[in-house]
Write a protein that binds this DNA or RNA. Structure first.
Lengths: 326, 326
DNA sequence: CTGAAAGCGCTTACAG
DNA sequence: CTGAAAGCGCTTACAG
C-alpha cells in the first residue's frame, strides 16, 4: 500500500497524490482531482510511510525524550502526557526512553528513529549532544551551555513549600530526611536547599539532616535524632520517606502530629491512606512537560507557527495538600 | 555524514562500505579494505540512518509496545525493561506508548516509526490489527484470535496467593475490596476470581466483596461490613486499597492483624512503611516482559536465530511478602 | 492545473 | 574482491 497505489487507483500522478495528501501550499489542485485522490486513499486504507517521509523531507517528525532511571511516578507521567500533547499540536510525536541498567542506551533509539529533536530532564554533556546530532537531531536540550531546566528550581520550590508550612504551624526546629536511594540524592539536595533557605530567611534554627538507612528502618535514627537535635517537625524528601518517619514514630510511641509533625512531597496515591493521613506537597509534571515542549519547538523554529496553541504558560507552582500529619 | 562520505574518505564504493559495516555474509572483503572503511567511519563519527536502512531493507528495527492508561508502577517498568533487554539481543529496539486521554494515539506513533511489530498488554481487535499492519507492522499481538496473554492468569494467580496466605493463617471468612478506579476493574475481577476460586476449593465461606468509595474513605464501608458479613481477613485489590483498609481499621479501633488481617498486592515501595507493615504479593513484571518479547520474536520468525539468548523461561510466580498486617 | 524526474540515505542483487 | 545501478516510499523543484 503505497502512494503509487493511490495514484494508480485515482488515475493521477504520485506528485498529485502527495500534493493533496499534504495540502501542499502554492499548489492548486482541482476539487475534482482532490476528491478522487482522497476517496482512493480512503478506499485503499492508505497511510503514508513515516520514515520515508522523513527521509525525503530531511526532517523527522518525532521528538525523543530521555528520562532518568527514577522510580515510576505519576508526576513523570503527567510530564510526558503534557509534552506529548503540546508537541502533537505541531505534528510532532513524542517517543520516550527511560534510562536503566538493562535498557538499551538512548543513542541506539535515536539512531533507529532519527528524531528531529531530543530532550532530557537532566542536561546532556557535549559528547552526548554531538552523538545525538550525528544521528540527525537538529536540537538537543538542555545542552551543557543551556540554562538548566527549571527542575532545579522546582526542587527548591518544594522544599520552600514544606518549610513554609511547618514554620507556619509554629515549628522552629525543623529536620530534613534524605532518601536512601543514591539516584535521588541530587534532587534531594535541591529540596533540602529550599528548606534550608526558608528556615534561614525566617530566622529559624539551622535544619538538622538525617538520611534514610538502606534497610528502610528509620526507628533507631529517629530515636537518636529526637534525643540529639530534637526537631519538632520533619520535612521528608518524599512521601515514602515521610511514611518511614511515620512508621518510626508509631513504633516509638511518638504521636504525629502532636509530638512530631511530618510533611512529605509528591502526593503519591498512598499518601492519603497513611495513619495519620500525610500532609504533602503536590507538584504537577504538567508545567514542566509544557515547558520542555515549548523549548523544543522554539529551538526547532516552529515557535511562531501558524497554528497557535492555547497552552497555559509553563509556571511551576507546587500545591500544598494539608492532611493530618502536620 | 552519510555512507557516501565514508566511501569517499576511504576510497571505496558505497556498496563496500555497506558490506563491511553490516558484516555482509557471502561477501569477502579484504582485511585491508575492511580496516580502511572502519577507520574512516570511526574518524568521521558515522552512524547509519535508521529510517533509511529500514526503508531499503523493507523492515524496521523497532517494536512498539502499547501500554494501557494504568497508573505508573514499578511492575510495568520491569516489564518494559526486560522486554527491551531480550529484544535488544536480537537487534530490535523497543518504543513504548502509554495510552491516555491526552496522549497521541498509538497509531500515529506506529505511522511515524513504522515498527516491525507491535505488542500490547491487552488484546487488539481486528480493526486495530489491520491499522497497524497498514502501517507496516508484520506482527501485531495479541490479536483477537490469539490466546490472551498470561496476564489474566497472572491476575488470578495473585488472588490465589492472597487467599492461600489468609487461609493458611486460619481465616475462613475472607473479604475482597475492589478499587474505585474503573480503569482497573477488569484486572480486579481477575484477582477476585483467584481469591474466590481458592476459597471455594478450600471449602471456606463465599468471599464477601466491597468496593472502595470514590472519596477514598473506606471507614463507613468497613464498619458496615464488619457488622454484616464480619470478614476476619481482607484481600485488597492492591496495596493502595489495602492501605485504605488499614486506615479505616485504625480510625475504627480495629486492630490489625488481630481483629482483622489484611493483605495487599503489588508491593509498592510504600507497603513496607504502613502501620503495621503490609503483607502483600509481589509479582515481577520481568517474566511477562520476557514472554512478550519471545512472542514477538517467534512471530517475526527470529525465534531460532543464530544468536542464542540465555533467558530464563517466562514463568509467572508471584512472591508473597510477609510483613505484619496478616 | 498536473506529471516526469531527481533525490533523501541506505541495501543488495548483478556484473566484472 | 569491488563497483555501477536499481530500488525502498516518499517529496519537491521544474517543466509544461
Amino acid at each position: 500500500m503505497t502512494s503509487a497505489d493511490v495514484a494508480r487507483e485515482s488515475g493521477v500522478s504520485r506528485s498529485t497524490v502527495s500534493f493533496v495528501l499534504n495540502d501542499a501550499p502554492n499548489q492548486t489542485i482541482s476539487p475534482a482531482t482532490r476528491e478522487k485522490v482522497l476517496a482512493a486513499a480512503e478506499r485503499l486504507g492508505y497511510t503514508p510511510n513515516g520514515p520515508a517521509q522523513a527521509l525525503s523531507r530531511g526532517r523527522g517528525s518525532t521528538v525523543l525524550l530521555c528520562l532518568p532511571d527514577f522510580p515510576a511516578s505519576a508526576t513523570v507521567d503527567e510530564l510526558v502526557t503534557e509534552m506529548d500533547r503540546v508537541l502533537a499540536a505541531h505534528d510532532l510525536l513524542l517517543v520516550t526512553h527511560r534510562a536503566g541498567p538493562d535498557r538499551q542506551p538512548a543513542l541506539a533509539l535515536a539512531a533507529a528513529v532519527a528524531p528531529v529533536a531530543v530532550a532530557g530532564l537532566l542536561p546532556f554533556d557535549g559528547d552526548q549532544v554531538a552523538a545525538f546530532r550525528a544521528r540527525g537531531a537538529r536540537a538537543v536540550l538542555p545542552g551543557p551551555a543551556d540554562p538548566p531546566p527549571p527542575r532545579d528550581d522546582a526542587g527548591r520550590t518544594v522544599g520552600v513549600a514544606q518549610a513554609g508550612h511547618l514554620a507556619g504551624r509554629g515549628h522552629v526546629r525543623i529536620g530534613y530526611v534524605h532518601p536512601a536511594d543514591s539516584r535521588l540524592v541530587s534532587m534531594s539536595e535541591r529540596r533540602l536547599a529550599g528548606v534550608d533557605q526558608t528556615a534561614l530567611s525566617l530566622g529559624l534554627a539551622g535544619v538538622s539532616v538525617r538520611r534514610m538507612p538502606a534497610d528502610g528502618d528509620f526507628t533507631p535514627v529517629l530515636r537518636g535524632w529526637l534525643a540529639e537535635d530534637a526537631p519538632t517537625a520533619v520535612a521528608a524528601f518524599n512521601d515514602e520517606v515521610a511514611m518511614a518517619v511515620l512508621q518510626a514514630a508509631w513504633a516509638s510511641d511518638v504521636v504525629v502530629p502532636v509530638d512530631l509533625a511530618v510533611i512529605g512531597a509528591d502526593d503519591i496515591p498512598a499518601a492519603r491512606y497513611t495513619c495519620p493521613a500525610l500532609t504533602t506537597i503536590r507538584s504537577s509534571g504538567k508545567p514542566f512537560g509544557a515547558m520542555l515542549a515549548h523549548w523544543v519547538l522554539q529551538r526547532l523554529g516552529t515557535g511562531g507557527a501558524a497554528r497557535p496553541t492555547a497552552d497555559e504558560p509553563p509556571v511551576w507552582t507546587p500545591d500544598i495538600v494539608i492532611r493530618a500529619s502536620s
